Amino acid sequence: MGLIERSLARMGLARRSLDGDQLSWKAIDPAQGLSGSLSVRAAENLSTVLGCTNAISTALAYVPALTYRQDGANDRAEAPEHPLRQIVRGGVNPGMSWPDWVEHLVASTLLTGNGLAEILRGDRGQLEGFRHIQWGQVTAVKLASGRLAYDISDPRGVKRRLLEGDVVHLRDRTDDGYIGRSRLSRAAETVAGVQSANVHANSFLRNGASPSGVIESVEPMKAEQRTMLRESFMARASGPSKAGQTLILDGGLTWKPAQISPEDAELLETRKFGVEEICRLFQVPPPIVQDYSHNTFTNSETAGRWFATFCLAPWARKIEAEFARSVFAAGSGYELELDLSGFLRGDPEKRWAAHKIALESGVLDPEEVRQVEGWNKRQTLPNSNPEVEVA
């Protein structure tokens, strides 16, 4: 049994032979990836999973995407003539902008382990855009050459095949070097436990009666009387909107409180811990997804830097490396850079402090700072001293 076959067996994925030289398996779709009982779509019902996915994907879609050309061994410059520059500005296709596409690609990778997009090229092979492909529509095929092919089945029943050079394939950590595996499936028990706590909490709020306790009778009750009392009591006191209503009993009936609450069942603490568990899976600091239980002004600022350094930077590097592999021709000298310094847009004080340091150290000159800020170059007055400038 080969490496890929052993990996498939460990992951429990179906395998079928196309012919003697090919091996194929059904890729992880939205109904798989966690366990047989919890799908990726069900996982998104967990607010922390959705919050972490949105935080990472929207942050990477937000930062500036720059195209550079390598000039010599140590020099590089922006390449405004490259088609990717226009795609970033004008959209990856007529129906999707660049930020939307990046958000789709990264979110799919976080939830299923794989994000796939078709590379659109013109008649002469020039880059024209990208088309997002849902991973649930993909069957990955290992060819005899050792390369991957992707069989796509769209909702209309049309099937087609794309090769490695035709797609951008962003993947989470793999077990076999070919197909990414979702971190939700790697920690399926953790995710299922958090989901179970949510189900229990919803059931408690939906079915719980308050006040909560036992109705006692001094006289034996018939089955019909017990049924009528139970139905009447549930209709009167069950549900969150009826909590705390006054209960009136007669006929020798008495109420004995049971003193059961969510705190006694440790339900609230369990749900709080579930937020931290999911954040660990995605490498997202809890304050980023609005969990401020351990928050201070100091550590919230640190959480933002931690998020950029240990979560976003590795994903940005993955995207840049995938573009170097699949979009740019080998040896072309072009590269994509996701500029994480773009996060300073939301903090003008730090941004201008950084500009000041760059000016004083000679890293940038004033015109370059103006360019970074999106301002035009300064113009000199006509028929005057060139050193006299106007803003």
Rank of each mutant, 00 (worst) to 15 (best):
V289Y: 07
Q290S: 14
Y292W: 08
Y292C: 01
S293T: 15
S293V: 07
H294I: 06
F297R: 00
F297C: 03
F297S: 07
F297A: 11
T298A: 12
T298N: 06
S300D: 02
S300K: 09
S300G: 09
E301K: 12
T302D: 11
A303Y: 10
A303M: 07
G304S: 09
R305I: 10
W306C: 06
F307T: 05
A308I: 15
F310T: 09
F310I: 04
F310Y: 14
L312F: 13
A313M: 13
W315N: 00
R317M: 11
R317L: 14
R317D: 13
K318I: 11
K318S: 15
K318M: 14
I319T: 07
I319H: 06
A321G: 01
A321L: 08
F323H: 00
F323N: 04
F323R: 04
R325V: 07
F328N: 02
A329P: 03
A329C: 02
S332W: 04
Y334M: 03
Y334W: 09
E335N: 00
L338S: 01
L338I: 02
L338A: 03
D339H: 00
D339A: 10
S341C: 04
S341M: 02
F343E: 14
L344H: 10
L344Y: 13
L344G: 05
G346R: 07
D347G: 01
D347M: 12
D347C: 04
P348A: 01
E349P: 01
K350G: 02
K350V: 08
R351S: 10
W352P: 00
A353I: 01
A354M: 13
H355G: 07
K356V: 12
K356Q: 15
I357N: 15
I357S: 15
A358K: 12
A358S: 15
A358H: 12
L359Y: 15
L359Q: 03
S361I: 03
S361C: 05
S361H: 11
V363E: 14
L364V: 03
L364P: 06
D365N: 15
D365G: 06
D365C: 09
E367M: 06
R370C: 00
V372A: 09
G374T: 03
W375F: 08
W375P: 00
W375Y: 12
W375V: 02
W375S: 09
N376W: 10
K377T: 04
R378E: 08
